[in-house]
């Protein structure tokens, strides 16, 4: 049992993901700097748009955040967090998670890895642990970039609320890698697994969108993990929905347990 805490495979997973971690971190730092820095030049246009009722079509979907588009907080919420954080970062991280085990099966390196005295459960668990630094590094670096850019352009932002938003995104991103890893132990080809994850996340996102736009369909939004992370509430009001956090942690835990159990009992065939 002591072996499970030594995390050799987790460390190797971190090392293996070093390059991709750097690339995604730089990408999100760039995006954060760009969107925050763009705000002063968009401000006037957005104010005009809201004054003439141009934001109304977005209201059912983004709620009060749409009307807030012309404020700094509202702007970075919509552009940076709703789109880049929830959707794009979700896709990227899930894509990586979904390939973790599947690429070892597809590439047959799993044969050698499993020849060591490590249980299959431990392999799955350590792969999960090995992805967590990726989430933390991107979060922290992006947060610092937002702070830096905000100071540079002289806008107002509650730094505690910003911190809270990034903190609240961690359970969401953990759920993303949990689901990705589950797909990864079931589907043997890494491309198929990753694409399946994207389809799943987009499907959930669309369902949540429908639930917001179409009356009587509010209920279907609950099946989407995107429903449980709301950056606007934390960024604007410092509110974090604790029940949402619990749901996301539960999703992560359940996915991880099913992945471990499923992987423990499946055949690793020669393809």
């Amino acid at each position: 049992m002591n072996d499970i805490f030594r995390l050799r495979i987790a460390f190797q997973t971190m090392k293996d993901n070093k390059k991709i971690t750097i690339i995604i971190t730089l990408l999100f730092m760039g995006m954060a700097a760009m969107y925050c820095g763009m705000f002063p030049s968009f401000k006037g246009v957005l104010e005009d748009m809201i004054a003439t009722g141009g934001a109304e079509p977005f209201e059912p979907f983004f709620g009060p955040a749409a009307a807030d588009m012309a404020t700094y907080v509202g702007f970075i919420n919509l552009e940076l967090y709703q789109i880049f954080w929830v959707v794009i970062l979700g896709i990227l991280l899930g894509f990586i998670a979904a390939s973790q085990i599947s690429k070892e099966i597809e590439g047959k390196t799993i044969d050698l890895l499993m020849s060591n005295p490590v249980s299959r459960k431990q392999i799955v668990f350590e792969k999960f642990i090995g992805l967590i630094p990726l989430i933390l590094i991107i979060n922290f670096a992006t947060m610092l970039t937002v702070i830096g850019t905000t100071v540079a352009i002289g806008e107002d932002l509650n730094l505690y609320y910003l911190f809270l938003t990034h903190l609240a995104s961690i359970p969401y991103l953990l759920a993303v890698i949990g689901i990705g890893l589950l797909i990864s132990v079931i589907i043997d080809e890494k491309m198929k697994a990753s694409i399946f994850f994207i389809a799943l996340l987009m499907g959930m996102y669309v369902l949540e969108s429908i639930s917001k736009i179409v009356p009587d369909y509010e209920g279907i939004g609950y099946v989407s993990i995107t429903h449980y992370f709301n950056p606007y509430d934390s960024l604007k009001f410092g509110k974090v929905d604790i029940s949402g956090v619990i749901v996301l942690i539960a999703v992560t835990t359940v996915c991880l347990i099913i992945s471990m159990l499923y992987f423990e009992h499946r055949d690793i065939e020669v393809t």
Binding site: G107, K108, T109, D111, L112, S115, N116, P117, V118, V270
Partner: peptide
């Protein structure tokens, strides 16, 4: 597996 090592056929290494 603490006592038994394995050389897979059609072996692939990282």
């Amino acid at each position: 597996k603490r006592e038994v090592a394995y050389i897979p056929g059609d072996l692939n290494i990282y």
